[in-house]
Design a protein around this nucleic acid. Structure first.
Lengths: 339, 339
DNA sequence: GTGAAAGCGCTAACAA
DNA sequence: TTGTTAGCGCTTTCAC
């Protein structure tokens, strides 16, 4: 078991018989190196199994190749997939990622966020909801003049700083789907009011209902809080109505799961007595009975595109990138055609 | 919106009218600084809102304060919670964490792992399953002489390098619970064979059955692969047996969910016709009907303890730390008492 | 108890 | 096309 010692740029330079600057040029793909020299240097790099020291690079460069992913911690599935995408892209282009959970309700949040940003010497940040909806937080980032990409922000953000999904549109499609299955009395459970983007989902529902000429009955529009239990509470009310809805569209899966639990408790079968659809395609949706019809956001792709957009900005590349990524409906077994 | 510029150790030294070395001493809690000087320096630090530059520190120090968390990507819930714990502890003691997903089945895995370790100049690693069971991978770490903590490794690892849970014991308790509810014909679905620790769960089942003097019928011991669909397949077989089990103990929740789906498909009610228990307490277990009785591992605590153990090692602290963390059963509604 | 100087491994600015 | 030099911000000698 031989202990390996990392080699330095000087070692490479010695082996290739060039100056360290030349090695540096090769590493960073800078111009003005003869092909022959490049070959020599690359051979030496391979031979020594050389890896540049990221700290030394960061220290020497003005802008370190480090970005951070900021998130709260409500949903493991959401954040893991976003993170996957971000890490995958950054790994390709040789950026480091610092993962930073921040408790949304913590006192001194801004102070600790500021401290973090300072300490980490970030080049830029990727921000997920609910922080991407938080004006104060975004101002903080701007006060550092840091490039950023906000994921699914409900704020009025310039396109070059944001990545969004077409929640409103898919939500409309989902409602259309319900309508095309004969449903008219379609209840809607809204999401947490501070999550702006989730409320686009309600708008999509409104769009579809309006277009179909079905008047929205506000007594079957509930205000949820994204959690299982809040879904249950909404469902209790909805299902105890004299004129029950035939379908419930929940703005997220977790609340939809709450609806299904309450339905079973009340002796209702899904989907024969009640159709239910959700949003997010969280892993459990395939596991519950019946499997839930829901909307899948391509989270890995969102993470990847966010990282790409941010890094392109950092490197002053032309960015004519798409900023809307399409979600799509996953049809499963929780909707029944009625007449 | 004023753009803030980070201050350096020199700024602090100027303001406090001392040398940079003295500032460095204060930052690192080194001895031989008069109380008065410490006060002066600390005031200057506060005034300038100074944060040491982690790269410069890492570069100057031999050992950077950076560790990495290595994982595959099967389970968002598992890894997010472990990560939470690791990040929380590291944040407290001022270590950076690099999160590194590695595809288990990728070709050139070892090569890319090696490259990663070199490049990141890690001080140590925390390794989760399945890598903590991978001899080749562990040898790689050792070839770099890097301190490590292996989470839930099934290998014969020295206690100071590992954090485990009492899977075998809880698994025995769970089986006891089933037995005490009148079940004798208890099926078991084993987990993926390369995940060593998951097979401790089977041992616990054996322990309990043996102790209760119930002979284990191998025709109701299934080999699962941790996935929903593999749970379904096992359940298909189990439930088509002439002499059906009255309870099924699945080594993870996902397979248990598969069992429940198949049971419903076959017109069986849970728990009245069949009791089912799982392992992991993944979020969906509370959402399915009926809520599943399962085992909860304190994942955040595992992450935190792993980080603590690793960092104590890095800093040569005495480590008389516990290395086994207790899981416990979460009783819900998927088990019925039979006679 | 304190400070000056060297150097960690790299990049940037300037020469050659 | 290539090399030299001076830092980046910090810690580590070693001297005072």
């Amino acid at each position: 078991m031989s202990i390996k010692k990392a080699s330095t740029i000087q070692d490479v330079a010695n082996k290739a018989k060039v100056s360290i600057k030349t090695v540096s040029r090769v590493i960073n793909n800078e111009p003005n190196v003869s092909l022959e020299t490049v070959k020599k240097v690359e051979t030496a790099i391979d031979l020594l199994d050389y890896q540049p020291n990221a700290f030394a690079q960061s220290l020497a460069r003005s802008k370190p190749k480090i970005i951070s992913l900021i998130y709260d911690t409500p949903s493991p599935n959401y954040i893991s997939h976003i993170m996957e995408g971000v890490l995958a892209y950054c790994y390709k282009v040789d950026y480091e990622v610092i993962i930073h959970p921040l408790r949304f309700n913590e006192v001194g949040l801004m102070r600790s966020a500021e401290k973090f940003i300072k300490k980490s010497r970030l080049a830029g940040l990727i921000v997920t909801p609910p922080y991407s909806d938080n004006v104060e937080f975004i101002k903080l980032i701007e006060s550092f003049d840091l490039p950023k990409v906000l994921i699914s922000s409900g704020l009025n953000i310039s396109e070059e700083d944001s990545i969004k999904t077409n929640d409103r549109e898919v939500s409309m499609q989902m409602t259309d789907y319900l309508i095309s299955n004969g449903h008219k009395r379609i209840a809607f459970i809204k999401g947490h009011p501070t999550h702006l983007c989730i409320n686009d989902r309600f708008k999509g529902y409104q769009d579809a209902m309006n277009r179909a000429g079905i008047e929205i009955d506000n007594s079957i529009v509930e205000n949820g809080l994204n959690s299982l239990s809040s879904g249950e509470q909404c469902a209790e009310r909805l299902l105890s109505l004299k004129e029950r809805p035939t379908a419930i569209f929940s703005s997220n899966d977790e609340m939809a799961a709450g609806v299904i639990k309450v339905a079973y408790r009340n002796g209702l079968n899904i989907p024969s007595d009640l159709s239910v659809v959700g949003f997010d395609d969280s892993p459990m949706t395939a596991m519950i009975t019946p499997p839930l019809t829901t909307v899948k956001q391509p989270l890995d792709a969102i993470g990847e595109k966010s990282a790409e957009k941010l890094i392109d900005k950092l490197e002053n590349k032309e960015l004519v990138r798409e900023s809307v990524i399409n979600s799509n409906i996953i049809y499963r077994d929780s909707v029944k055609k009625i007449n």
